[in-house]
Design a protein around this nucleic acid. Structure first.
Length: 497
RNA sequence: GGCCCCAUCGUCUAGAGGCCUAGGACACCUGGUUUUCAUCCAGGCGACACGAGUUCGAAUCUCGUUGGGGCUACCA
C-alpha cells in the first residue's frame, strides 16, 4: 500500500505556522515511506474563506519546501483539490443523500434561534450542552415535503444512542474510549447546502485515497464521528493519528495574540525556511542520534511517526532564533547579503512613503526610521502625560487602548492597517466618552471628558514611538506592527507607574 | 459544568524496569578568545508534579490526586 497523506488547511486569514508543523510531519511521513503528500483546501465556510488566503498557503508551502505531489495548483488525478469546487460537483450532497436513504442521517428544521434557546435552557439546568436530537424521529416523508417546499434545513448524522466507541491511536497509551451517548447528531450538510468539515473531510480523504490522517489533537473528540461516517459510507477508514498542539508560553493553544503565527511574518522577518522547518522538527520529536541541526532530507530519512511525543510543545521563539543564527551565519557572503538587502528593502518600501514629507535629505531617513525598526523605544514620562491629566489618567487611557488593540488582533479576519486602526481608536473614544444619561457621578463625567482624540492620539503616538513628532499616527502604528505597538504601549504603562 | 487528552530542568527534548548520583540543546550565570559586541570555546545553575501500589529494583508499569490543555458551532 502506498502511503498517501494530506494537509487540509482552511484558507482563513494568514497561513498558519501550525499548518507548517502538521505539514512537515505529514510530508516527512510520506517521504519516509516513499508515499505521496497532498494539499487540499477546505473552504466550506463561505463566510470565512478567501481565494487570497488559499494562494498564500500555496506560496508558503513552496517557500518552505514542503512540496506537495497533488494539490489545487499542481493538479493530480484525484482532484479537484479545493472543496468549494467539489461542492459544485455535488459530491458531498450525494453522500449526505445516501446516509438519509440508509436511515443514518435525517433532516432537521430547527432554527438558529430555536437552538440558542435550547442551549440556554441546558446551561441554566446545568446539563451538557448538545443538540437534543429533536428532529431525529421526525417522519421522513413529511420532512421531504418540507424540504421540497423550500424550507431551510440541515442534514444531521444519526449517531448510535448507546454503546461505546473504541479506537486505538498509535501514539496514545490507552485506547480512545467514548460513550456514544455523549456524541451528538452533528450537522453534515449546512442550510446553505455546503458540507461541514466532518462530512467533507471524510468523503475527500476516502476519494483521495488517503491512508493516514496525521492531525492535531483538537480533532480527537470528533474521531468517533469520522470513524462512524467512514463505516456508514462503506469506506475503509484511514488510520487517524493525533499529535500535540503547539502552545503559547502559558501552555494555551498557540494564538496570534501571544505568538507570531503567520508564516508571512517569518518570511518577511527574514527567517530562512530551513531554520523554521528545523525548529518545527524539534517540537514533539527528535533526531534519534540527538542531532539538533538537520535538513528536510535528513528529516525524511529518520522520521518515525511512533517516536512523536503527544504532549503539546511550547513554541519558543528564542530557540528558533538560535537555529536561524546557525543557518544564517553559514550562508555564503552573497546569499547573506541578499537576505539583508531583502529585509532592508521591505522596510524601506514600507517606510519611505510616510517619512518622505518630513525629510530634507536622504540621510534623514535612517534617523527618522529608527523608531519603526528598533526593538524598543525609550519613553520620557513627561511626554506621556497629556496636558491637564495626571499619570494615572494617562495610564488608564493607554491600558484601554492596548486592550482594544489586543482584542483587535485576536479576532478572526482583522487586519492591522491604518484605516482599521483609526476606526478602532475612534470607536473606542466614542464609547468611552459617553456619560451615563442619568445619575452620572462627577468621577464618571471627568473620566469621560478625558477621552478625546487629542489626548488619546497624542498619548498613543508617544507610547508607540517614544517621540512627540511622527508621521500620521495610524500609518505609523501600521508600520510598526501589531506586536511591537502593543508591547510598547505596555512599556509606556510601566513607565507611568 | 460535561467529555477527552497530556505530565522529565524556565523552554525543546533523550530516556520504552537495573546502563540515571537522569543525558543533550535553547535561555540564564561565570570564565576564556575578541579593542567592544556578536560568534566561538570551557564551566555552572537547573527537572522525573504528588501519593499509593506492583517489583529484589521504577523517570519508566498500575491506580488515585493535583496541575495543564483541548473539545463542547449550520468554524475548521
Amino acid at each position: 500500500m502506498t502511503v498517501r497523506v494530506r494537509i487540509a488547511p482552511s484558507p482563513t486569514g494568514d497561513p498558519h505556522v501550525g499548518t507548517a508543523y502538521i505539514g512537515l510531519l505529514n510530508w516527512s511521513f510520506a517521504k519516509h515511506h516513499g508515499g505521496k503528500f497532498i494539499l487540499r483546501i477546505e473552504d466550506t465556510d463561505q463566510t470565512r474563506c478567501s481565494e487570497s488566503s488559499a494562494q498564500a498557503i500555496y506560496d508558503s508551502m513552496k517557500w518552505l519546501g514542503l512540496t506537495y505531489d497533488e494539490g489545487p495548483d499542481v493538479g493530480g488525478d484525484r482532484g479537484p483539490y479545493v472543496q468549494s469546487e467539489r461542492v459544485k460537483l455535488g459530491i458531498y450532497r450525494k453522500y449526505a443523500d445516501q446516509l438519509i436513504a440508509q436511515g443514518d442521517a435525517y433532516y432537521c428544521f430547527a432554527t438558529a434561534r430555536e437552538l440558542e434557546a435550547m442551549k440556554a435552557r441546558q446551561r441554566a439546568a446545568n446539563e451538557p450542552i448538545m443538540y437534543d436530537r429533536r428532529y431525529r424521529g421526525f417522519d421522513l416523508e413529511e420532512a421531504k415535503k418540507r424540504v421540497a417546499s423550500g424550507e431551510p434545513y440541515v442534514i444531521r448524522m444519526k449517531t448510535p444512542l448507546e454503546g461505546e466507541f473504541v479506537y486505538r491511536d498509535r501514539l496514545r497509551k490507552q485506547p480512545v474510549v467514548k460513550g456514544w451517548k455523549e456524541i451528538d447528531d452533528q450537522v453534515l450538510l449546512k442550510s446553505d447546502g455546503w458540507p461541514t468539515y466532518h462530512l467533507a473531510a471524510v468523503v475527500d480523504d476516502h476519494l483521495m485515497g488517503i491512508t493516514h490522517v496525521i492531525r492535531a489533537e483538537e480533532w480527537l473528540n470528533s474521531l468517533p464521528k469520522h470513524i462512524w461516517l467512514n463505516e456508514k459510507l462503506g469506506f475503509t477508514a484511514p488510520e487517524y493519528v493525533h499529535v500535540g498542539l503547539l502552545r503559547n508560553a502559558d501552555k494555551s493553544k498557540i494564538s496570534k495574540r501571544k505568538n507570531p503565527t503567520s508564516l508571512l511574518w517569518y518570511r518577511q522577518q527574514g527567517f530562512l525556511p530551513e531554520a523554521l522547518l528545523n525548529f518545527l522538527a524539534l517540537l514533539g520529536h527528535s533526531h534519534p542520534d540527538g542531532i539538533e541541526k538537520f535538513d528536510l532530507t535528513e528529516m525524511a530519512r529518520f522520521f518515525d511517526l511512533d517516536r512523536i511525543n503527544v504532549a503539546g510543545p511550547v513554541f519558543d521563539l528564542a530557540k528558533l532564533r538560535h537555529l536561524q543564527g546557525l543557518y544564517f551565519r553559514e550562508l555564503d557572503a552573497e546569499r547573506a547579503k541578499a537576505e539583508v538587502l531583502k529585509a532592508v528593502e521591505t522596510r524601506f518600501e514600507q517606510l519611505f512613503p510616510i517619512l518622505r514629507e518630513r525629510m530634507a535629505c536622504g540621510g534623514d531617513f535612517l534617523a527618522q526610521a529608527e523608531p519603526y525598526y528598533a526593538d524598543a523605544v525609550t519613553h520620557h514620562v513627561e511626554d506621556l502625560i497629556p496636558k491637564g491629566l495626571v499619570k494615572e489618567d494617562a495610564r488608564a487611557l493607554l491600558e484601554d487602548a492596548q486592550r482594544a488593540f489586543k482584542q483587535h488582533i485576536a479576532a478572526d479576519g482583522t487586519v492591522w492597517d491604518a484605516p482599521s486602526l483609526e476606526k478602532l481608536l475612534r470607536d473606542l473614544i466614542a464609547e468611552k466618552s459617553q456619560v451615563p444619561p442619568i445619575g452620572a457621578t462627577p468621577e464618571q463625567e471627568a473620566a469621560a471628558k478625558r477621552w478625546t482624540t487629542k489626548n488619546l492620539f497624542g498619548l498613543v503616538r508617544v507610547a508607540a514611538t517614544g517621540r512627540r513628532e511622527t508621521p500620521p499616527l495610524f500609518d505609523t502604528l501600521a508600520a510598526i506592527g501589531a506586536m511591537k505597538s502593543i508591547e510598547r504601549l505596555g512599556a509606556a504603562q510601566m513607565k507611568l507607574r
